[in-house]
Structure formats: structure tokens, C-alpha cells
């Protein structure tokens, strides 16, 4: 699966099991995946195939049952909760399907949230926020609250929030799933630009073939197994 570039994400022999009542549900089994640095990877598959679970494992939001997840030189499965939180703050940005903005905060304060965990001064944080909002083309809406923004604009704020700390890895869970085609295209163009112009490594979960076409590579997940070809 490797393209020859340095591998940023390495998922090795990962199993993930959930318990539903007395029943054990195997979501991922023997999963292996390498994502080279600078790749824009689309992860496709039917509902319940384990796409979001895999994304959560790569982002350190969840823990493997067995196997390892390595990002760069760091083993996420060996980190404590506190180490994992610090790692997420430094290295990863999340973009969610439903934007998940804080309704009580305006756009710029939503974008500022990850920076509260840094030692930056108020003025430095402000500068970073302005830059991120400019990148997504929303600096003119900085003072607007989420309820006054369209879906596309809210997702742009979500992306600005994800990139404001300049993370190496962007993880997007159905970023266009709640948007119309036009807004979805704008978001995909933005992600593409972040990948191509700023070298961000992106892993995007999507149902939409139109979205996966923007990625540099697509992998398919079904019944806990990955394949490069779309299953029949």
C-alpha cells in the first residue's frame, strides 16, 4: 500500500471488539494500513463496516483491542490517556460530519479552542485564528455564531479549528455528509488545497464516491477488512 514515501500512519494487526450486552462484536480484525506522509486517503465502506472506528483509532480517540497504531515514531496504543490527549493537541485535527462547533462561541472563539491548550499569548492566539480563518475564506465571518452560518460555513470553521494548531494529520469523518453538493465541493476543494499546498496528511471517511475522487488514494472497508478495490 505504501507509495514509497515516509509512512506517517501505520496500523498493524489491529483488532477492535465492542461488547453489546453479552455479545462481542468484532468491528475490525487483523487490520493493516499504511498512510504515507502527505497522502489524502479516502476510506470508504458501507455503514457499520468500521470506518469511523478505524479513524478514531488513528486519531487516538479510542484504543485497540489488540495490535498497534503508530503515528510517526509514536505508538498510540502504548500511551496513557494524558499522553494521548497531549499528542492529539499537538499532532491531529478532527473534522466532523455535523461540524460539532460550540454554539455558545462565535467562529473565531471556536477556532481558538485548541490554542487554549498551548502557551501562546492572547495576541498570538488571535493571529493564529485569523490565519486559519483566512485559509478557509471566512475571516469576514469571524464574529458570527454557528447558528448564523450556513452548513458549508460551519464546516469551514470546523476545518479552521482543525488546522489552527498546524497538525501533521487531519482526520475527517464524512466532512461533506451533511452538506449540499455545492458546499460539499467547496469543502473538498479546501481539503485538497490543504493536502497539496500545505502538505497535510488527510484521512477522510466518506460514503460519497464523488468525495473519494478528490483523494489521492481510496481504500474500502468491509466486514472489518481493507481492500484497495471496491468490493462487489
Amino acid at each position: 500500500m505504501s507509495t514509497g514515501q515516509e509512512v506517517l500512519v501505520r496500523v498493524e494487526n489491529v483488532e477492535k471488539t465492542f461488547r453489546r450486552g453479552s455479545e462481542e462484536v468484532h468491528v475490525l480484525s487483523g487490520m493493516n494500513l499504511d498512510v504515507p506522509s502527505g497522502e489524502f486517503l479516502a476510506l470508504m465502506g458501507p455503514s457499520g463496516s468500521g470506518k469511523t472506528t478505524l479513524l478514531n483509532l488513528i486519531g487516538g480517540l479510542d484504543r485497540t483491542t489488540t495490535g498497534s497504531v503508530k503515528i510517526g515514531s509514536e505508538r498510540l496504543d502504548q500511551m496513557s490517556d494524558r499522553q494521548l490527549a497531549a499528542w492529539r493537541a499537538r499532532h491531529v485535527g478532527f473534522v466532523f460530519q455535523f461540524y460539532n462547533l460550540m454554539p455558545a462561541l462565535n467562529a473565531e472563539r471556536n477556532v481558538e479552542l485548541p490554542l487554549l491548550l498551548t502557551h501562546l499569548s492572547r495576541a498570538q492566539r488571535k493571529r493564529h485564528v485569523q490565519t486559519a480563518l483566512e485559509v478557509v475564506g471566512l475571516s469576514h465571518r469571524a464574529k458570527h455564531y454557528p447558528r448564523t452560518l450556513s452548513g458549508g460555513e460551519q464546516q469551514r470553521v470546523g476545518i479552521a479549528r482543525a488546522i489552527v494548531t498546524d497538525p501533521t494529520l487531519l482526520l475527517c469523518d464524512e466532512p461533506t455528509g451533511d452538506l449540499d453538493r455545492k458546499s460539499g465541493d467547496e469543502i473538498l476543494s479546501l481539503l485538497q488545497a490543504l493536502n497539496q499546498d500545505q502538505g497535510k496528511t488527510i484521512v477522510m471517511v466518506t460514503h460519497d464516491p464523488h468525495a473519494s475522487n478528490r483523494a489521492t488514494r481510496t481504500v474500502y472497508l468491509e466486514k472489518g477488512q481493507l481492500s484497495a478495490e471496491k468490493p462487489e
Binding site: G59, A85, A86, R88, N100, L117
Partner: peptide, 15 residues
């Protein structure tokens, strides 16, 4: 609940 999850995903520790 979701917002707390989002904060944690950004790196906010449990503490």
C-alpha cells in the same frame, strides 16, 4: 455530551 467529546478530541485532558 458531544461537545465534551469534541473538547477531548482536541486534547483537553479528563482532568
Amino acid at each position: 455530551t458531544e461537545e465534551i467529546g469534541v473538547l477531548k478530541s482536541m486534547g483537553f485532558t479528563n482532568e
